[in-house]
Design a protein around this nucleic acid. Structure first.
Lengths: 211, 211, 211, 211
DNA sequence: CATGAATGAGTGTTCATTCAT
DNA sequence: AATGAATGAACACTCATTCAT
């Protein structure tokens, strides 16, 4: 039922750089990725230099370039790591709520979306605003997310009013869920609780679906 | 009736840099801002160096620093220019539709939002994704936009169901209008016309407001 | 009578790097070129880094790159400077000995060749053996030198035995003069004086011409 | 009759590196040397990195350093391999033409010189122009070549005009043969056939010897 | 005010070499 | 001996910024 999800990969622009195949290699990749996060949060984007990354990751700069063809690839991998996590969550919810109503599924999706970003809001805010995101994997992600919602809505067409256009629905719902979840977490006014904001997001999505 | 709108300003981190007060000064500032746009679109963010900017603007690098304390200020000013334009549009709509129903006003706002970005979609997409936006003026803008919507909704409280919380409404509506307008323009699937997408955005906002 | 000699130029691979046009600019270019020579002789090719060059030249590394598109261009310019000098010498000899016999001209050419390198034999030995010479200007030089000798020999065809092929003559004589002059200066056995070596080179060239 | 020829050796700057003594060792050394040639011709000097060499040679980088103390030693060995070949050729000609006249011997020497480089002209051009040649083994070679010609000329002193200085003769002839052979192969103008150029080189050498 | 040559700290990246396995 | 992941010194080069003219 869930579409096959491609496993996370470093992008393979420069094919002579070998992919991590061994235990130690994976450790290095993760160490570097964690280092980006740490430096990003503690010192800001401008401090994210490849040499600083190596230092914080506790590996040599040469090792960094053993696994990443260039600096951009590090950011791409970081984005990918996040995207994969969201993707996994979405697939899980889809399966878990295969038998649920549209309302329940949407609620679960929004919950999942907010939860996924709650783990480290600061990081995800930084990723979204400060770290350059080329169209690379981000596009793929949008497509995948879109696909998931299309699947969910198609399977529940009977719950929708007659004559609703599935393309329009998918487009609006996907964007609402994504952007309002972000907003609830990152841009909600201080006097609004997260729970209240979340409830309101759910209300908005359902109101649209049932309109 | 309209909240006082602060005039556009270069941010004044370094106070010894004087504001443009003369004809020629304004010309330089605009020339530089236009140069950013041109270089951004033709050569990408990486090509946006202060020296290239000066060259394309047809002024000396020294002159650039006469009006901008540093490179970041150029980006801020560019964002500001866009923000001011949106701001102006919002105020105008608010005045024009002072007597309109909530539905009509929302429709007008979404129209205005999309129109404002339609002028140069490529640019605004670049501004949003490639040009670093510090919390600087962006925060101010969010606050102003928020304020405008709060005003509009407060004045039409009678059209809303009883017991709706104004903070929640403002939060959701503001974010929906902004992000869905962007999405309609930049991330709409190819088989969806702009008109159809726009209509659906309106539908979503109104469905929420009337829920 | 002498073919028009193109003035020395930095090679213009990367056209956005402006050519030196002013007094100060020329000083910088020369300072850098002199620095290469100094570092080359005192510390070896491996010590010739762009930063060391800037340091020794007494200019900033930025200034170096204001006038040279990359490191290779510095070497090319250095070779060019030498080549131009030889070229100038050759043209001069050609003019000065316009009325001389072939024997006298050849003697003068060999003299000139050796003198030109005598000024700083160590440098020219380094240039020839240690400094990478791409086909760039070196090819042009070979052609120009070839042309000069062709001119000289053609004009004295009557001094040559009937049936000698001018192409063959030019080829052999040009290469003999160049390589034997170098050899006389750089590879002559210690018990051979420069004067004796030079005399022998002349003898060899004339023997061939008169054969 | 032939002077004792030192056997080919890797230069022994770092004495703890053992000489190749076994079958497999020789294979590695040769594989590396062949790899240099291949990379040099296909990808240029800049691509000749020790790691690339190991890769192309099909051995590990560690093995490369088992047999070569450093990168320079690889180049030295490559030059040496060429030099030894020339050396062998020279000795052979000397023996073969022990009873020949000076003219015949010179002709044979020039033939041999050109033939030796004809096998792979591209390679020898690259070796001469792109691959750094320290004074290391090159000096030895010059001395050996010199020695061979001295031997040949001394033994045929009776064929020479009285009063010719053997040092001068050896110096000029050695350099003529070497540089003109190279020129005939690498720098001959296109409209000159190799045969014609070779004939002319012979003519030049003999003209000098008989002058 | 305008100019643009000069600056130089700092960046991404390479690659010869080592050494634990 | 062989391996190849790891190392890190060193390099070429950029570009925001300054300041003498």
């Amino acid at each position: 039922m869930t579409p096959p999800k491609p496993p996370m990969q470093l992008n393979a622009k420069k094919p002579h750089r070998r992919l991590p195949q061994q235990r130690r290699a994976h450790q290095t990749v993760d160490a570097v990725l964690d280092a980006v996060v740490r430096v990003l949060k503690r010192e800001g984007v401008k401090a994210v230099t490849t040499n600083r990354l190596a230092e914080v990751a506790g590996v040599s700069i040469g090792s960094v370039y053993q696994y990443f063809p260039d600096k951009q690839a590090i950011f791409v991998a970081l984005h990918q790591r996040h995207i994969d996590q969201i993707d996994r969550m979405v697939q899980t919810k889809l399966v878990e709520h295969a038998a649920s109503s549209l309302d329940e599924l949407m609620q679960a999706m929004i919950d999942g979306m907010i939860d996924a970003h709650s783990a480290d809001p600061e990081l995800y805010e930084l990723l979204a605003t400060e770290v350059p995101h080329r169209a690379d994997g981000t596009r793929d992600f949008a497509v995948r997310l879109h696909g998931a919602f299309r699947l969910a809505l198609s399977a529940r067409a009977h719950e929708l009013k007659d004559g609703r256009n599935i393309d329009e629905l998918v487009f609006v719902v996907t964007n609402m869920v994504e952007s309002l979840s972000h907003a609830a977490l990152f841009r909600r006014p201080t006097r609004l609780s997260l729970a209240a904001a979340k409830a309101e997001v759910v209300r908005a999505v359902l109101a649209y679906l049932n309109s």
